[in-house]
Design a protein around this nucleic acid. Sequence first.
RNA 1: GGGCGCAUAGCUCAGCUGGUUAGAGCGUUGCAUUCACAUUGCAAAGGUCCCUGGUUCGAAUCCAGGUGCGCCCACCA
Length: 708
Amino acid sequence: MPIELEKNYNPGETESKIYQLWEESGFFNPNNLPERHQKPYTIIMPPPNANGHLHAGHALTMTLEDIMIRFKRMQGFKTLWVPGADHAGFETQVVYEKKLEKEGRSRFKMDRRQLYDEILTFTLENKKHMENEVRRMGSSCDWSREKFTLDQDIVRQTQETFKKMFDDGLIYRGPGMVNWCTKHQTSLSNVETEDIEKEDTLYYLKYGPLTVATVRPETMFGDVAVAVNPKDERYRQYVGQTIEVQTPIGPMKLPVIADESVEKEFGTGALKITPAHDANDFALALRHNLPIRPVIDQFGKLTAETAKYAGLKIAEARKQVAEDLQNLGLIQKTEPYKHAVPTCYKCGTVIEPRILVQWFVKMKSLADQALQAVKDKKVSFVSEHFERVFTYWMEHPIDWNISRQIVWGIPIPAKVCTSCNYGAPDLENTAHTCPRCNSPLQQDTDTFDTWFSSGQWPYLVLGYPESPDFKTCYPTTVMETGRDLIFKWVPRMIMFGLYRTGAEPFQTVYLHGLVNDAQGKKMSKSKGNVVNPLDLIEKFGTDALRMGLIVGNTPGMDTTLSEDKIKGYKNFANKLWNIARFVLMSIPDSSDFLNATPTSDDRKLLDDLTALAADITIDMEQFRFYMAAEKIYHYVWHTFADKILEDSKARLASEDSTVKASAQRTLVEILSNSIKLLHPFMPFVTEELWSKLPLPDKRLLMIETWPQ
RNA sequence: GGGCGCAUAGCUCAGCUGGUUAGAGCGUUGCAUUCACAUUGCAAAGGUCCCUGGUUCGAAUCCAGGUGCGCCCACCA
């Protein structure tokens, strides 16, 4: 009996069944692939944060990487796609703190150990959801190799990198300027702050014989100098002098110094120097050997140094100080002033620059090596312009603060002195006394910036240095991730990879753009336009969602996700289903017809498809998935269904058995090749239909050969 | 202030190294329908390819300038 298909394709039922079939087949694991699969092709999945659900961007990541992997697997590569989960230090802790807040609790009143354990439980719970959602996307990744950033071996290697970098002089212990979030009580790296435009007042303050311009009069108590440009004739006579400055809490004496960094044109050309609370002033203070005088504490309140202002929060203090200065006649004038201020990217609190004794990575030499690797084309970017963006970043490296004052993360394996600034790695827990001052040492309670571990991800997940996976699969083939990670993650992976393994971590970087809403607007919780990929899967099926994400989506460019578009691909899945239904209804029980000689007309149809397959293969090789997908879609619907299939109806009814058998054979062959070409994009419906085709020696479609 | 990108049909976007009549999806309009599929088919309407200049036999495509928009970075306090 011919195989009968249901009238319509039902994605829901099919998808869970098929994924289970794949997973049980073992073919996600390259070790189980048939003999022909020899040459490695490896992708390390950017580990999604294990603190919530997949979003549209993840859905795009999974789709693109799965397309690459499935295509290469069919071509005969030994494909490995390693899934992972990121503990996402600060991000997760923020999520958990919000949860605590709702429960009326606070991390600051909790025992460190308890807080850690609670977040761990929370994370492991969410990690399961995340993993199931990765499966729902159809991802053919090797779950047997899944890694979590807090796995013991990962933690151990991360800590060893820290020690090695310290020994090599690439990591040093501050004091250094850090971005301090007064709400979250931790320092943040430069990529964890977000500049926002702010309207402030620019105050012109009388500083003895000079006038300085500032938006932060409350920091005047921390001033240690006034700086002018050495070429500024107006102030030349004061350079080297000490001036007496009136303040609401009494006079202070400040030296006047000359420094090139001072702009003559801005304000009055004279700049108050507050090294404890301004990154530029700190750099300038280092150049001129100036003292550092902190007047703001970790909670953003003024310190005892400021006498009557002590305990006031910055905003309140600013108001008070300005008012008092006004009354003393020390404000010459004020003007409105628009500028960008860095804020905590999670809570929007204005960052307070502070000088703290913490760990920093020296970026210059690492960045130079990364730059060279890219120049030498050891790493190339899909969409070449990303190379320019990357180069710009690597030419302007800033030392990287890797200490976080949060519990959720990999502990920094170091001992720090209780009385001086000494600190050093101590992985084996053997150091107890400070070699500098003999004071007791204590375990550093800080954890690593999460990018410090995820930056090492490619070689860590492959089991560097000893594992066979590392030896055969590193450098990996492609790193596919979001465009915004060109400066957060990609450079760190290249730098760490080159430093620790001596080789670049991947050969090609494919960056995708943002997934925006149907109107092209960025999705955000506050706008309420966030689209949940799981909802779309429920509604239209995974295959339809994948096509909707891929077609028309060029590398690096943002894309829009609209239900109408996805609906169109749901219809397409059904169209394909019905093509197969028709073909299966048109062929006899016996499979003799498969050996029929095609008529010359049919031969032409088969040759056309071969040519198309070759064309599509080139698109796939060159990462033009948006185009390959559209081409096969167009062929299946508007050539195969609308023309070939319609034309075949007469021949299928032919009395001439040669003509009839040729038509049958041709239809089956075109169908099976179309299904193969579509498989990377629409894996579920194609695998299901493949199972229905009356072909000899059939295996799972996922390991079938790509059409030549 | 610097960097990167974008501007093509009503909407969202393709158009790779310059080459007949500029394409797709959705939307719109008309017609069809006991057929594998109404989750369908056939057909139609719809474009100053942002503007100006240049290179070329030939420009949506390459170059220069302009305009508008988006993103990222930045120490003029």
